[in-house]
Amino acid sequence: MISRDEMLNLANLSKLYLSEDEIEDAMKEMDGMIDFANQIKEMSPNSHETPNINGLSNALRDDEVIESYPQNKILENVNGGKDGYFYIKKYN
């Protein structure tokens, strides 16, 4: 069972704010996810290994410049940004 502190730490790492009632629910959901992950872990002893199932290796690219996107295209999803930048209003 995940502890309340662990849950809060996870939320903090993901920059999520959880209200009091959400904490309880999130802990239950997280337990479910951990159980599922443990099930997978039983099948693969080295959990950090993600071997490529196609047996591929060395998919390398030559060091050749491909034209970048125009600045306005890059900033399209953030309403055009500000002065050419992604803009974040004062944060903590």
Binding site: R61, D63, V65, I66, Y69, I74, L75, G81, G84, Y85
Partner: peptide
């Protein structure tokens, strides 16, 4: 000092206009 970035073909250069050496 490669010509391009590590995972895409955007230019690896210092001092360009912001967000002009970018791609998805």
């Amino acid at each position: 000092l490669t010509k391009t970035k590590i995972f895409c073909g955007c230019k690896n250069s210092f001092g360009s206009e912001p967000n002009t050496n970018c791609c998805p």
